[in-house]
Design a protein around this nucleic acid. Structure first.
Lengths: 146, 146
DNA sequence: ATTTATGCAAATCGTTTGCAAACCT
DNA sequence: AGGTTTGCAAACGATTTGCATAAAT
């Protein structure tokens, strides 16, 4: 999606939750849109000029509730944020380095995704669980740490 | 594995990291062995009679480093712990409730696991990443919350 | 006897929250 | 104006840590 298309979609989602698409929120969304991996709070603060830490945290809650961003919690010190997959169009997963905490994106062949998806549907039913997504992470050592 | 077999394996692993298999640690391992799902700190404190909170946290670090337990971090307030898979013999995944934080175990057909595993090997190589495990979670609403 | 584990209480630190000023409509 | 968002500083809470005592070898 182009920046413009993302903006329109974000605006729609925020509106549907009675929230405004403010200048600060635009900055945050744009920062995430440009990134090829989830970003930590310090990373977002560094790139967003003069944004207060508390505002970023608060806006992430709002954006998360509106379905605009996704929060990634690993064992690392910081949570990470990325744009929701349906805004980027790229279904992906994460490589998590157990040494430095770095998180990178990766994708698996569509064929595998489909098999997995169908297997998970059955599992969810058996457990009477209303699934709204799955998460597949690889953990290990990244190039720099190994 | 029986309680006895687990104990032997745990002792070996602790020894190899120059750690002792103390009474408190035995209690913690036994609590985890009996559970069919990962346990939070409050849950472990409740079941372990008179264990100090700090000791449990400290022992979890030791047991984790020895490869005896695995730490599960979700978006929930507490981390959760379970016995390492090679001590239970059951490779499994987690259903995570986004409302109450509950975590339940599930398994997927071996055939799917195998396909997934081989796909992930390729991904890891492409990213020059030294994989030591994968994590597949389903998120959604559990029976009680939906 | 010397090292290691434990309990208690205090410290840490990412994240959340209260409040007054700035902003939008 | 009336309500929302922002920045600052203080509060929160899960986890960690310092230190004195207890346990293990």
């Amino acid at each position: 999606m182009t920046a413009g298309e993302v903006d329109v979609a974000v605006e729609t989602r925020l509106t549907s939750v009675e929230q405004r698409y403010t200048a600060k929120r635009r900055v945050l969304v744009e920062i995430l849109r440009r990134s090829t991996r989830p970003l930590t709070m310090p990373e977002m603060l560094e790139q967003g000029d003069g944004l207060a830490q508390s505002s970023v945290y608060r806006n992430m809650v709002v954006l998360e509730q509106a379905g605009v961003v996704r929060r990634i919690v690993t064992g690392d010190e910081f949570a990470r944020f990325e744009l929701a997959e349906d805004l980027t169009g790229h279904h992906h997963h994460h490589l998590v380095c157990t040494s430095c905490g770095a998180v990178a994106d990766f994708i698996v062949p569509q064929e595998i995704e489909d098999l997995l998806e169908s297997a998970l549907v059955g599992v969810a039913e058996a457990h009477e669980f209303a699934v709204d997504g799955h998460r597949l992470d690889l953990s290990g050592l990244c190039r720099r740490c190994r």
